[in-house]
């Protein structure tokens, strides 16, 4: 049995109502776990691209890819190689920041190349992007100040280099 590895799937879909429901429904009814899912329109307004982070062994991943490919609205599914891809996530985080702690928080914000987007008497709201490790590290540094709220977009990703998702063969065409 292989281990439950995390995989990042990049999925091209028709930009149509119901697609998100079909994809998320497929995961829940077949018992696959989604860590995160982000979706948005692509360079072609008729096509959207989803980035889905899943956990599973080789069998599960194979099944997920095959079942996704069975959906008529799914155009292409690729499993992104961690070493050959760029992963980013955006987070907004609201932390307690009274006068005595504000400066030290801003210092950390600067180190992480994040930015303060809102200030109040009691709080600071910080926007940051990065891969998961960076975001987790920032969250742990903010914990002592008291985190009020966190919102994250989920991972989004693109392969490095000039290769495009469209150049991959459709599943079933390979081998």
């Amino acid at each position: 049995m292989s281990v439950n590895n995390r995989h990042v799937l990049s999925v091209l879909v028709e930009n149509q109502a119901g697609v998100l429901s079909r994809v998320s429904g497929l995961f829940s009814r077949r018992g696959y776990n989604i860590d995160s899912l982000s979706v948005g329109v692509t360079e072609d307004p008729a096509i959207s691209r989803m980035t889905i982070v899943v956990k599973g062994d080789r069998y599960i991943l194979e099944q997920i890819k095959k079942q996704l490919n069975k959906l008529i609205d799914v155009i292409k599914v690729i499993d992104l190689d961690k070493d050959k891809s760029v992963f980013r996530e955006l987070m907004l985080i609201k932390v307690n920041a009274r006068e005595n702690s504000r400066a030290s928080i801003i210092e950390i914000v600067d180190i992480f190349r994040a930015s303060v987007v809102d200030v109040s008497n009691e709080t600071l709201t910080v926007e940051m992007t990065g891969d998961e490790d960076k975001i987790e590290a920032f969250i742990s540094l903010m914990k002592p100040y008291g985190i009020r709220e966190i919102v994250r977009t989920g991972l989004t990703a693109l392969e490095r280099g000039s290769k495009e998702i469209k150049s991959y063969k459709k599943y079933g065409e390979e081998d």
Binding site: E14, I72, D73, I75, K76, E173, D175
Partner: peptide
């Protein structure tokens, strides 16, 4: 013309 739907009909010669 359905971009995401092209069922494989012919079997792969190598297979």
């Amino acid at each position: 013309q359905i971009t995401g739907y092209k069922p494989t009909v012919k079997g792969h010669a190598g297979q």
